[in-house]
C-alpha cells in the first residue's frame, strides 16, 4: 500500500499512464474502426451471391408455374412480386411448394421438403430482391419469452378459431379447401402464415396483430399443444361433434343392435 502510494508520485508514473492510454486508444481504434466496412462488404457480397444462387434454384424449381421472372403464369401460378422472404420460407420450408400436382390447395408436407435451410434462404433472398415484401420474423418474437398466453388465447378466439377450431385442430372451408391443424407446427411457420396470408387465409399485418400479439397467439397454441387432453377421455381428433357422432352412430348403435338381437333370441 505504502509502496504503491510512493510509486504514484514518481515522475515515471505520468509517462507510464500516457503510454498506456495511447496504446489502448490505438488498439481500440484498430480493433473497431476498420472491421465495420469489411463485414459490410462481405455481407453485401454474400447477399448478392445468395440472390444469384436463389435465382438459379428458382429457375430450376419454380419458374414453370411462377414464370421466369416470378411474374406469374395465368391460371397456373401467382406472381411472386412483393410476397417477401417470409412467404417463400413458409411455403417451401413446410413442404407446400413446390406443389406436387395442381389441387384445391397445397398441404403441409414437412417430410418432403426438397431444399436445405440454406437453399430456402437463397430463394427467399431472390424473391425478396424482386419487390419489397414481408421479411422473416425477428427471433425475439419466436422465443415466446414473456408472452401473455391469456391475451394470446383471446386474440386467437377472435381472429383464428373460426377456421382453425378452438383447439387448433383445423376445420373445413368451402369447396374442398380446409384450414390445417396448428398442432405441431413450427413457431416461425405460424408467424409467417399470419404475416403473409397463404392461400385462402387472410393477412394479419402488424397493424392488425402486433408482433407481440402474434407471439402471444403462438405461445397460446404451444400451451394447448403441450397441455394435451386435459379434460380426459378420447379426443377423437378434437374436431367437435363430427367425431362424437361417428362414434355413437357406428360403435354405439352397433352395440345396442347386437344386444337387442341377443336379448330377442331364444336360448337353444
Amino acid at each position: 500500500m505504502t509502496s504503491l502510494a510512493a510509486l504514484r508520485r514518481s515522475p515515471i508514473a505520468l509517462l507510464v499512464v500516457l503510454l498506456l492510454g495511447l496504446t489502448f486508444t490505438g488498439t481500440a481504434y484498430a480493433a473497431l474502426q476498420p472491421t465495420a466496412p469489411t463485414t459490410d462488404v462481405a455481407a453485401a457480397a454474400t447477399q448478392a451471391e445468395d440472390v444469384e444462387e436463389g435465382r438459379k434454384l428458382f429457375l430450376a424449381n419454380c419458374a414453370t408455374c411462377h414464370g421466369t421472372n416470378a411474374e406469374g403464369v395465368d391460371e397456373v401460378g401467382p406472381s411472386l412480386h412483393g410476397v417477401g422472404a417470409a412467404s417463400v420460407h413458409f411455403q417451401v420450408a413446410t413442404g407446400r411448394m413446390p406443389l406436387p400436382a395442381p389441387d384445391v390447395q397445397a398441404s403441409r408436407n414437412e417430410d418432403q421438403v426438397k431444399f436445405s435451410e440454406r437453399e430456402i434462404e437463397q430463394m427467399a433472398a431472390y424473391v425478396a430482391s424482386l419487390a419489397p415484401g414481408p421479411e422473416r420474423p425477428d427471433a425475439q418474437y419466436l422465443d415466446l419469452e414473456g408472452a401473455d398466453i391469456a391475451a394470446g388465447g383471446a386474440a386467437y378466439r377472435t381472429n383464428c378459431a373460426m377456421c382453425h377450431n378452438s383447439s387448433g385442430s383445423g376445420g373445413a372451408l368451402t369447396r374442398g379447401k380446409f384450414a390445417p391443424t396448428l398442432m405441431g407446427v413450427d413457431e416461425e411457420h405460424i408467424y409467417e402464415a399470419m404475416l403473409t396470408g397463404p392461400q385462402a387465409m387472410p393477412v394479419f399485418n402488424d397493424q392488425n396483430l402486433t408482433p407481440q400479439e402474434k407471439e402471444n397467439i403462438i405461445a397460446f397454441l404451444k400451451f394447448i399443444e403441450e397441455g394435451g387432453n386435459a379434460h380426459g377421455g378420447a379426443g377423437i381428433g378434437n374436431v367437435g361433434p363430427a367425431g362424437d357422432a361417428l362414434f355413437i352412430w357406428t360403435i354405439g348403435i352397433g352395440t345396442m343392435i347386437a344386444l337387442a338381437v341377443w336379448i330377442g333370441r331364444k336360448a337353444a
Partner: peptide
Amino acid sequence: PSGAPIRAADVTQGSVFH
C-alpha cells in the same frame, strides 16, 4: 380484442379485421 383504432391505410388487401 386489443382495442386499437384502425387507420384506413393499415387495412391492406387480403387482410381481415374483426
